[in-house]
Design a binder for these strands. Structure first.
Lengths: 192, 192
DNA sequence: GCTTCAATATACAGATCGGTATAGTGTTGG
DNA sequence: CCAACACTATACCGATCTGTATATTGAAGC
C-alpha cells in the first residue's frame, strides 16, 4: 500500500531534475497558473526545448510536481514513524513531522490543498494525487488511532492536522501545529 | 469592530452586480488566475468596457469578490448567533452556519484559503481581506470560548473549523463539519 | 432640452501564454 | 567511428491575456 503510482514515466536527467526543483519552488510559492513555463525553464537554467523534451506538457510537469511532493512527504514521515514506538507517540510524531517539514519547505500551507484550489476538473490527472494523499493520511490516522485504542479519534486528528496546516500557512496565530499536537496529546490521554 | 472596510469604492450599478456575481462564481469554482475577464464579462452579459468602467482592473475585481464574500459570511453568521443563547450553543452555531453556507455556496472549501493559495505577494490588496477574516474568526472563537469558560479552547476550535472546511472541500470523508461540531461539543462538555 | 452616465458593440494593442521548429554541440557506448 | 541522446540557442506559431479606443444608444435629473 505505497504511493498511488500513477503515470510518471519521464526520464529523470540532470536537467529534468533542475526543472522539477524550480517548478516545485515556483508552483508552491506563486501558484500553478501564475507561473509560466518560460520562467521555470529560465530558473532551472534550461531551454524550453529541454523542458518539453522531458515533460511533454506543463500539465505533466504539474503532475510530477505533486507526485514528487507526495513521495517525499511519505518518505519524510516514514523516517519519523518508528514502528517500535507506541501508537500514541507515533500520532504525535506526525504533527512533529509536519512542523519539521514546514520549517524545511516553507510555510504557504499544504501544496496539495493549494493545488486543489487551482484545479476544478476532477478528471485532471493531478486530482487523484491530491485526493490520494489526503485519503492516505486519513487512513494513517485511522490505523494509528485504532492501535492506540482511540479509533473514533481518527477524524478529529485529521481535522486538527489539516486545520493546523492551513492556519500555519495563513500565519493567523503562533505555532498552530504545536497547538494541534498538544490538543491531540490531551485527547489521547483521556482514552487511557 | 465590523468588516475591515478597505478601499472598495466602486459604483454598484446593476451591471456591476452581475459582474461581481459571475466573477465570484467563476473565481471560486475555477480559481482566480484560471478565469479571464472576457469570460466574466460574457457570463455576466456585459461588455468588457462596462466591466472596466466599474472595476478598473481585474485585481480590483478580485478584491471586491473577496470583500463581498467576507461581508456576506459575517452577516450570514451574525443571523445565526443569537446573543440571547449561551456561548456554548453559539459556538456550535458557527459550525452549523458553515455547514449551511457550504450547502448554499458549493463545496470547494474556503474561498479565502483558496485565494491565498494563488496570491504570493503579501502587499496584494486582497491579502488583508483574507488574513482579516481569519483573524476575525479566531477573535470570535476567543470571545465565545472565554464567555463559555473555556478560553483555552479557542485555538482548538479554530483548527477544527478550518480543518473541517478543507476536508469538506477535498471530500475526504463524510460530513467533516458535523464531525468537527461534535468534537467541539464534546470538548465544551468537559469544561462544565 | 441638454447634460450626465450606464450601458452597448466592436475593434485593437501589446504582452504573455503553452508549445513547436530548426540547427547545432558535446558526451557516451557499442 | 558513429549512432544515440541530452542539451543549447533562437526563432517562431496561434491563442489568450489584460486593458484601451471609438462611436453609439437610452434613460434620468436639473
Amino acid at each position: 500500500m505505497g504511493t498511488t503510482e500513477g503515470p510518471r514515466r519521464i526520464t529523470m536527467t540532470p536537467a529534468a531534475r533542475r526543472v522539477l526543483e524550480a517548478a516545485g519552488r515556483l508552483f508552491y510559492e506563486r501558484g500553478i497558473h501564475a507561473v509560466g513555463v518560460d520562467l521555470i525553464a529560465a530558473e532551472a537554467g534550461v531551454t524550453k526545448k529541454t523542458l518539453y523534451d522531458r515533460f511533454g506538457a506543463k500539465e505533466q510537469l504539474v503532475v510530477e510536481y505533486l507526485a514528487d511532493r507526495d513521495e517525499r512527504w511519505r518518505a519524510f514521515l516514514a523516517e519519523r514513524l518508528d514502528p517500535a514506538r507506541p501508537a500514541r507517540e507515533r500520532i504525535l510524531a506526525v504533527f512533529d513531522a509536519s512542523h519539521a517539514w514546514s520549517v524545511r519547505h516553507g510555510s504557504k500551507g499544504c501544496s496539495m490543498v493549494n493545488a486543489h484550489a487551482e484545479i476544478d476538473d476532477p478528471s485532471h490527472p493531478a486530482h487523484p494525487i491530491i485526493v490520494g494523499q489526503k485519503r492516505w493520511m486519513l487512513g494513517l490516522f485511522t490505523e494509528l488511532a485504532q492501535e492506540a485504542g482511540a479509533g473514533r479519534l481518527a477524524g478529529t486528528l485529521m481535522l486538527l492536522h489539516e486545520g493546523a496546516l492551513v492556519a500555519h500557512g495563513l500565519k493567523i496565530f503562533a505555532d498552530p501545529i504545536g497547538h494541534a499536537r498538544e490538543q491531540a496529546r490531551a485527547l489521547l490521554a483521556q482514552v487511557s
